[in-house]
Amino acid sequence: MSEVAQSSGPLAGLKVLELGQLIAGPFAGKTLADFGAEVIKVEPPGTGDPLRQWRLLHQGESVWWQVQSRNKKSVTLDLRQEAGRAIARQLAAEADVLIENFRPGLMEDWGLGYETLAAANPGLIMLRISGYGQSGPYRDLPGFAVVAEAMGGLRHLMGEPGRPPVRAGVSLGDTLAALHGVIGVLLALQARARTGRGQVVDVALYESVFNCMESLLPEYSAFGAVREPAGSALPGIAPSNAYRCADGQVVIGGNGDSIFKRLMTAIDREDLGQDPLLSGNAGRAARVDELDAAITAWTVQRPVAEVLATLQAARVPVGRIYTARDIAEDPHYRARGMIERIVTASGLALDVPGVVPKLSDTPGAIRSLAPSLGEHNAELLPGERKA
């Protein structure tokens, strides 16, 4: 863990009750916890959050769990039973923020709706993450990240032209929703500092994806243009693509006007760099195939290391396409504190992602390992708290 592991963080004193599971809600909780919030994670007895059993396991527990639930405390409550819900209401009465990512209406069915909880705790901020939001005709439909990415417009753009769309190998919809949720919580805390009142932060997975779709909608509105998949290229912005080398691939972003000229000089194509018709992006976008062919003709004859060295010396944005091994061995990741070594309760030495973003005066930190199931029952649950 980091040298600032004992730092309280900028959110010290903030109490968060996390009722969600799997990815979106818990990722929001993890982000708040990284910066000092006390995050109390409520899990079902016996099984806990299903993420404990997702993907690769060490001694029966997911190594992903060590990232998603670090800095949190775990208590077990059966929210399907009134006894468990009554305790959850007591915990919510003491909390600043409550996070949930159940289907809309379930919290109300359980007697845990915002109006009920706010009656006892008017300053409570409730972050609600769902597939389609708490209102609208789709609110009751089940919504996972894979569907949100499709509805939000992202999936259609992923893949090669004329081929079925592909998905990223991670749940982008969940993570984007979690980050939008954290932004909403911080905004609501700012408002509460002025008014004393809490509020609901309503985050839909598909809206979080859609919010990142750049010019997709206005281009359709103005021109009837339906943006289509373009493989590894960035449509309308050139040159920006992945290019084959003698022993691999690199990505090159040569789409700035001055960068383009430096790139063309570096690949011995000053004729293109000095062409007045290519001095702006519009001209380059119209001749993108010609430019990509010229760059490929140069890169394909050279190993990745030579391409990187040449273009970096020319101050052209370029990079290799990283695997997990590349990340683990990269000195910049380690210099920036983006790879931290922990030792789990089972004795496994494990590299995990560091804390983002970087704050100069009040940085976040990994202060504690992910908890065992119900580890903090005695400390936190009414009737079981230590004297």
Rank of each mutant, 00 (worst) to 15 (best):
P50W: 03
L77T: 07
R334I: 02
V166L: 15
L263F: 07
G364K: 13
F223W: 11
R325F: 03
D271A: 04
N281Q: 00
I267C: 06
S8A: 14
A309N: 14
V304H: 07
Q274A: 11
R197C: 01
F102I: 11
P50I: 07
A193L: 04
V147F: 07
S360Y: 02
G374Y: 07
F210N: 07
L79I: 13
S240L: 08
R336N: 14
K15S: 08
L112Q: 12
E290T: 13
Q312I: 09
H332R: 14
L127F: 05
L216V: 15
A145D: 13
R85A: 10
D140G: 12
W65G: 01
R336A: 12
F102S: 15
L217R: 06
A225W: 05
L308K: 12
M1L: 06
S8W: 13
T31M: 12
A95E: 05
R302C: 07
A28P: 03
L216I: 08
N255G: 09
V343R: 15
I366Y: 04
T76N: 09
E290Q: 13
R155V: 14
D247Y: 03
E270W: 00
L380Q: 04
F27K: 01
E306Q: 10
T362S: 12
V316R: 11
L157N: 02
L234P: 10
R70L: 02
A345G: 01
Q81T: 15
P382I: 09
N101Y: 09
I321K: 12
V147L: 13
I125G: 14
